[in-house]
């Protein structure tokens, strides 16, 4: 694979974005790629927007994805996914969890939470909504939503094998939660990606 694959993971503080990007990077490394990732710590994590850029390929220079070149936006929160869509390439896809978390300004009534689905459709963005909430409920564990989302993304990344994903998850999640995380991954992986309607 000559071309570098660009993924942006996003959500809000505390959702597990950073762990999800660690798993993705570990899986890409196990598949033999050069990998770089960049994220911002500090003030951004106090419930604010969190994002992580992951790039892998033969040789990666920049740690940041260039706007208009992302193969995938992986969002754990719907509005945060929409926020990054200008980073998508024409072939890119938004893979978003069905989760809405209000920013404080919406809680206090100073702002409106937008109709994300309608805006994504209006922009004509290929989008997969991943029912991570129902997966989490079925498994009775709300901490596996990030891994379920990765599962959905994994079927779009043929360069990383299921074995590499499994090994990466085993390496990064706490031992006693391995089985439930693996099951969340498998259920996410089963989510179909519809072609966008013309």
């Amino acid at each position: 694979m000559e071309r570098t694959t660009n993924v942006i993971l996003c959500g809000t503080g505390g959702q597990g974005i950073l762990l999800a990007s660690e798993v993705l990077c570990a899986a890409a490394i196990k598949s033999g790629f050069d990998v770089k990732k960049s994220e911002v710590h500090g003030m951004a994590q106090r419930g604010g927007s969190v994002s992580s850029h992951v790039r892998f390929g033969k040789k990666v220079h920049s740690v940041l994805v260039e706007a208009g070149t992302a193969d995938m936006i992986l969002a754990l929160e719907k509005m945060e996914g929409l926020r990054w869509t200008h980073y998508l390439s024409p072939r890119g896809r938004l893979v978003s969890a069905d989760i809405r978390i209000n920013p404080m300004t919406v809680n206090t009534g100073d702002a409106e939470y937008p109709d994300v689905d309608q805006m994504v459709t209006a922009k004509g963005i290929p989008c997969t909504e991943v029912p991570v909430l129902s997966i989490a409920r079925r498994l009775d564990n709300f901490k596996v939503m990030n891994v379920a989302l990765l599962g959905a993304a994994s079927s779009l990344i043929p360069d990383i094998s299921p074995d590499a994903w499994e090994a990466a998850i085993a390496e990064r999640v706490p031992g006693k939660t391995l089985e439930v995380n693996m099951e969340a991954f498998r259920q996410g992986r089963a989510v179909p990606h519809q072609e966008v309607k013309a």
């Binding site: 809000t12 106090r46 929409l82 200008h86 998508l88 920013p103 922009k123």
Partner: peptide
């Protein structure tokens, strides 16, 4: 795709 004007999410 163009940028989308959305409410911010300050910490």
């Amino acid at each position: 795709y163009g940028e989308t004007d959305l409410p911010g999410r300050p910490p």
